[in-house]
Nucleic acid binder design. Structure first.
Length: 426
RNA sequence: GACCCGUUCGUCUAAUUGGUUAGGACUCCGCCCUUUCACGGCGGCAACAGGGGUUCGAGUCCCCUACGGGUUGCCA
């Protein structure tokens, strides 16, 4: 029988979590969960120069925000340490195996691993069978596995870690495809069984260029700041380079786990589309329960106010602006919208009649009906009154449903705002 | 340069073992619903990189070219 699935994400601390790395982590997590396995995170911090506390924190904060869970000392893992900088004893021990097997030799103080000169075949779960020929030494010189200062290089520690941590599936970026035969050779020399490999395509900018730190959408830490829901980002990232192969597009993490498979991962790199990412976010916002939506807004505004804008916003960052007119008695009026109403005599008369009708209204729940009857009494369409009324009450051309605004503001405040607006019209 | 991977609407993508009017989604544009704003519904614009084969028949298989990406470190 096959071993319990263990996948891993092995970032190096660079100060931020790249969206491509986040997606790689997500695929590893989805695959592990799909097969009832475990997702391991280990930090490749052998390059001491950029290994800072904040750099490490950025990784874990990002993964946590996405809602992933992983194995480490705090999460019942016993394959630690999970930092390469703390595993030198292990590396030393495994390095001796290469020495014993006579597969390394000294070269100017460093140690090189000598490749077997033969074609190496890999069966990638995404790319299929790929053969790299190691016969020609000039293309594939023996690689350094231990530097002259005694430290070990990436290829060696990466392989030893995967082996000792019991990793069964290595899912990583396509930039590692050409590293795989090197790793396979190392594993063979160590007398171990290699994990299965899956190389997923990279994420590019909208124009096809490589995504770097400053590009839009590159840093995962920016998403919460920009008002994205983590569930939406998970959903969007999963759809970048992978397809559930049906018409549905909006998924919860649990649904993704149920559908994920490496066979459906694409080979071609995907381009990042901020527009669609926002649409996915809007869909997730729409799908939130009232309580969850209110909680996500993290706003001073009342639940009724917030709920009135749930289907009007795309990003959470729009919330303060969308509800500000409720809270600010002296809210600003959009000049453009005001201009549209200003030259309109009909609007002015309708509004003044509406004020009278509002004032004599005992049952405020009838307010919305009154709009229609007021307009009709003057032979006008209700729409001709509703737009000016919207400007009068909110200062904006768009916003929540008028009925909701009327109800939330209440009679006195509506009448007051109407009077204020009439003054503005002059 | 060498080696590797890739190429379907502008973007994300679907297309049972070769037989489709090449499907869906985002964006944009119409229409409908709505006495307002949205949501929603319906419809439209828009793609098999190019060229050769194989085949009765190719987006699907093979080759070449072009373009894109990756790798070629005592970085990870």
């Amino acid at each position: 029988m096959s071993l319990p699935v263990r996948t891993r994400f092995a970032p190096s601390p660079t100060g931020y979590l790249h969206v491509g790395g986040a997606r790689t982590a997500l695929f590893n997590w989805l695959f592990a969960k799909r097969h009832g396995g475990t997702f391991v995170v280990r930090v490749e911090d052998t390059d001491a120069a950029r290994n800072t506390e904040e750099a490490r924190a950025a990784i874990f904060e990002g993964l946590e925000w996405l809602g992933l869970d992983w194995e480490d000392p705090e999460h019942e893992g016993d394959c630690g340490p999970y930092y390469q900088s703390q595993r030198t004893d292990i590396y030393e021990e495994w390095f001796q195996k290469l020495v014993t097997a006579d597969r390394v030799y000294e070269d100017e103080g460093a140690w090189r691993f000598c490749f077997e000169r033969k074609p190496i075949t890999m069966n990638d779960l995404v790319c299929g069978e790929v053969v790299i020929d190691y016969t020609d030494e000039s293309n594939t010189p023996d690689m350094v596995v231990r530097r002259s200062d005694g430290s070990f290089v990436f290829h060696f520690v990466n392989v030893v870690d995967d082996l000792t941590m019991g990793i069964t599936h290595v899912i990583r970026g396509e930039d590692h495809l050409m590293n795989t035969p090197k790793h396979l050779q190392l594993i063979e020399a160590l007398g171990a069984t290699p994990p299965k490999y899956a190389h997923v395509p990279l994420i590019l900018n909208g124009d096809g260029s490589k995504m770097s730190k400053r590009d839009e959408g590159a840093a995962l830490g920016d998403y919460p700041k920009q008002g994205f829901l983590s569930s939406a980002v998970v959903n969007f990232l999963a759809l970048l380079g992978w397809s559930p192969k049906d018409e549905k597009e909006i998924f919860s993490a649990a649904e993704l786990i149920g559908k994920f498979s490496l066979e459906s991962v694409n080979r071609a790199p995907a381009r990042f589309d901020p527009e669609k990412c926002r649409w996915v976010n809007q869909q997730h916002l729409l799908g939130l329960s009232p309580d969850d939506f209110v909680a996500s807004c993290a706003s001073e505004a009342s639940p009724a106010m917030l709920l009135s804008i749930q289907e009007k916003i795309t990003l959470l960052t729009e919330v303060p602006d969308a509800v500000s007119f409720y809270l600010d008695p002296e809210f600003p009026t959009d000049p453009l919208a005001l201009e549209k109403v200003k030259g309109n005599d009909l609007a002015a008369t309708l509004l003044s009649k509406l004020v009278e009708n509002f004032e004599s209204l005992d049952d405020w729940s009838q307010a919305k009906e009154i709009i229609g009857t007021t307009a009709k009494a003057s032979d006008a369409k209700p729409g001709q009154l509703m737009f000016p009324l919207r400007i009068a009450l909110s200062g904006k051309a768009g916003g929540p449903d008028l009925g909701a605004i009327l109800e939330i503001l209440g009679k006195a405040e509506c009448v007051r705002r109407l009077a204020r607006f009439t003054a503005l019209l002059k």
